[in-house]
Nucleic acid binder design. Structure first.
Length: 755
DNA sequence: GTGCCTCGAGTTCC
DNA sequence: CTCGAGGCAC
């Protein structure tokens, strides 16, 4: 008889599987030991990965046999991480959504306005069904399929090349293809195949899938490609990434070219000449939906002309030239059993509905967001009623849907089934986690816990944010571990700096070392310490973002980092601007009072006078404070609210001390300005003024930014270039005064054309 | 002062 | 993914 280790996972009996899991746990543990304690590992990385993959495959086939000491539970060894991460040559973006006809006509209007096209100029769009599967990018070089990568976060995805090779719709080789070609499309499973698969799964005692999309995702992300091969996956091509030569001049043409190359393309793809035709196509596809044999969740429209697509470009996460028109969401009735309050990192109290579990759109839903106080009461931010029944109460029958097919929300309440005894929900005014007052600021829709870092919920959420992907991204230190360390008495992590003293404190702790704890071992402990060490050197923008200051997200952090360049300059500027920030807040307070009095007295508020009075009050503000403040709020995208938030965070004594302790452990990387050699305008700060005749402002801004320039709203000493169209007024004058180079639109186009 | 547009914050389920 | 709100252009 063959030894169990040579038997394919599918063919193992239960007994053989149990023995194999024991053998693999042993072999992996041994490999870990030799890898970490000796210079010469006994097995190659590839062989090690193979052991881990086989272990995971057996565990997924025989979940009951999973061992308590399973290697797949060790930190940094979750199954998804055994796929290598690969960066996309061209980002894979998601699409903006349209939910009704007006959104579609707005889309057309927005594009015309961006391109400066009159309403009656011809403008064609493609319409195609939006397949409900998972997107995949296939890279071909010299006609050979060399890489298949999942979408991931759009920047990097998982390398599933071996699995993609088993999909019949994906050609292994292309003839007469461009030298480099990235084909993008959707992996999906047909209804018939999905049902047959579930029957097989049930017979084998394995887990059945909730819907075809989950089945497709689960099948593609198998560690053992032979399992993927046995799953009936299909692929539609509809887009492309990097190409060494253009596929065509239109979207329709490019899709036809993909079909010529041997890909399946969706037969319902239609060319539309007007928004009305787009809506007709939508309606037609919707009527065919039930008979297609695969899931779709809407219709995607794209500008057909690829040259126009290039001009339209991209917003932060979506192309301007495409939109997904979603089908109406499925609805389901269920009972609201309880309302719980969660406390977020900014102290926001968020109500969550605990629901009697109900299936909506193929997924069992048991929670739904209730947003805030007003949403429960049935009002939107402007006080308008948002549903037929006024408020939502515990015990109500509620109609649930999944917004954008993901986030469960409550659409309506069945008043006829409301119990007589029910009471309106009483929103707490104390933080449920720490008991501090929960305060709702004037004009704000959110009630916030005032406890700050005293509040354990806020402290732990801030820590989770600190280690999150866009921040410090420490492998092996995710939300779960943070929660565990936060309540740990021997080796606590209560603030970011504690992360960087973890190893030293563990070494100094004679009682119980981390490696001797339950669920931890030598390997996981050293892996964690190493992962932490790797992040002691870190880019400035990540540090700023990681601090979790309100209103300072990824983009603002990036803007601040680019503007100040290094940590010392940033903190110096914040400290210098402090007096001005206080004056600004006094001015705002005075302004509120003035507005109130003005209203009572039935006169207009004296806005400028009130503001100036505060700014010019004695003692006069030091000039450097004013300069630092103006410099800060002069950054494009950064205004007074954000500046106040940033400066006050740095001047809260406890918070500042925590920030300083953190900074002492880090080597913060300076931000280098974008290279100036790529483009003549890269790294330059440009201001547009006057009427632009060849392009709209939005287009001018987007194109300048794509070339690495920074577009500012007003001229200052930092401005490198002013592009002035006819009718330029005060800005052109100021530029002359400051000696800023001024050019006209044609000169600008020549400049970027040459770049 | 008003009306877009983008970013930030919070949330669910796999 | 959505909502609210900050920032900025008009």
């Amino acid at each position: 008889m063959r030894p169990a280790e040579n038997i394919a996972v599918e063919e193992l009996t239960e007994g053989q599987a149990r023995a194999e899991l024991a053998r693999l746990a042993n072999a992996i543990a041994r490999a870990n030991r030799t890898y970490h304690t000796e210079d010469a590992p006994e097995i190659s990385d590839a062989a090690y990965d193979a052991l881990k993959r086989r272990n995971a495959a057996i565990e997924s086939r025989f979940p009951r046999l999973k061992r308590a000491d399973s290697p797949s539970d060790q930190i940094g060894a979750t199954p998804s991480e055994t796929f290598a991460k690969l960066r996309h040559a061209v980002r894979m973006l998601s699409l903006a959504n349209a939910f009704d006809d007006a959104d579609v006509t707005d889309f057309d209007a927005r594009i015309r306005s961006f391109l400066n096209l009159p309403a009656d100029a011809p403008l064609a769009y493609t319409a195609e069904p939006k397949i409900d599967g998972l997107s995949l990018s296939l890279r071909y070089e010299n006609g050979d399929l060399i890489q298949a990568v999942t979408r991931g976060d759009g920047e990097t995805g998982e390398n599933v090349t071996q699995n993609a090779r088993t999909i019949a719709d994906i050609p292994q080789r292309l003839t007469s293809a461009p030298e480099i070609l990235e084909v993008r499309g959707e992996v999906y499973m047909s209804h018939a195949d999905f049902e047959a698969l579930n029957v097989r799964q049930a017979e084998a005692g394995a887990k059945t899938f909730a819907n075809p999309r989950n089945a497709a995702a689960g099948s593609l992300r198998q560690l053992d490609a032979t399992i993927t091969a046995a799953r009936p996956l299909k692929f539609f091509a509809y887009a492309w990434g990097e190409t060494s030569e253009p596929l065509a001049t239109t979207q329709m043409g490019a899709v036809a070219r993909l079909a010529d190359l041997g890909f399946s393309t969706n037969p319902l793809t239609t060319l539309c000449n007007t928004p009305d035709e787009m809506l007709e196509t939508y309606a037609r596809i919707e009527t065919q939906r039930a008979d297609l044999g695969y899931d779709i969740d809407g219709v995607v429209y794209k500008v057909d002309d690829l040259a126009l697509q290039a001009r339209l470009g991209f917003r932060a996460t979506t192309p301007r030239w495409a939109i997904a028109h979603k089908f109406p969401a499925e609805l389901a009735w269920t009972r609201l059993e309880k309302i719980e309050i969660q406390v977020g990192r900014t102290g926001a109290l968020s109500p969550v509905a605990r629901l009697h579990p109900v299936t909506v759109g193929g997924v069992v839903v048991s929670n739904a967001t209730l947003h805030n106080e007003d949403y429960i009461a049935g009002r939107d931010s402007k006080g308008a009623e948002i549903r037929d029944a006024k408020d939502i109460r515990i015990g109500d029958w509620v109609q649930v849907y999944r917004a954008g097919d993901v986030i469960p929300k409550i659409a309506n309440v069945d008043l006829s089934r409301r119990p007589d005894s029910s009471q309106p929900y009483d929103f707490p005014t104390k933080c449920p986690e720490c008991g501090s007052d929960a305060i709702r600021e004037e004009g704000d829709s959110v009630r916030r816990c005032s406890g700050g870092l005293i509040c354990p919920a806020q402290a732990v959420e801030k820590l989770k944010h600190f280690v999150s992907r866009a921040a410090f991204d420490i492998e092996g230190l995710g939300a779960k571990q943070v929660e565990m360390f936060f309540v740990d008495d021997l080796l606590p992590i209560r603030e970011p700096a504690d992360i960087f003293t973890l190893e030293a404190r563990d070494a100094a702790n004679p009682l119980q070392k981390l490696k001797n704890r339950d669920g931890w071992g030598e390997t996981s402990a050293t892996n964690l310490f190493r992962a932490i060490d790797e992040k002691r050197q870190i880019p400035l923008n990540r540090v700023i973002f990681a601090l979790g200051i309100r209103h300072v997200g990824e983009v603002a952090a990036q803007d601040l980092a680019r503007h100040y360049g290094n940590w010392a300059a940033l903190t110096a500027a914040i400290d210098a601007a402090r007096p001005a920030e206080q004056r600004h807040e006094q001015a705002e307070t005075a302004l509120r009072a003035e507005r109130q009095t003005a209203q009572n007295e039935g006169r207009r508020a004296r806005i400028t006078e009130t503001r100036n009075a505060v700014w010019e009050a004695d003692p006069p503000l030091p000039q450097p404070a004013i300069e630092a403040w103006n410099d800060l709020i002069g950054i494009d995208g950064i205004g007074a609210t954000l500046a106040v938030s940033l400066i006050s965070a740095f001047h809260q004594p406890a918070e500042r001390a925590s920030i300083d302790r953190l900074a002492a452990h880090l080597r913060i990387e300076e931000v280098s300005r974008p290279a100036t050699d790529g483009s003549l305008v890269a790294g330059k700060t440009v201001v547009f003024t006057g009427t632009l005749e060849k392009m709209t402002r939005a287009e001018a801004k987007a194109r300048a930014e794509a070339l690495g320039a920074k577009v500012a709203g007003s001229v200052s000493a930092k401005t490198d270039l002013l592009v002035a169209g006819p009718g330029a007024g005060s800005k052109a004058k100021k530029a002359t005064e400051l000696g800023v180079e001024t050019i006209d639109e044609d000169a600008w186009l020549a400049l970027i054309g040459a770049a």
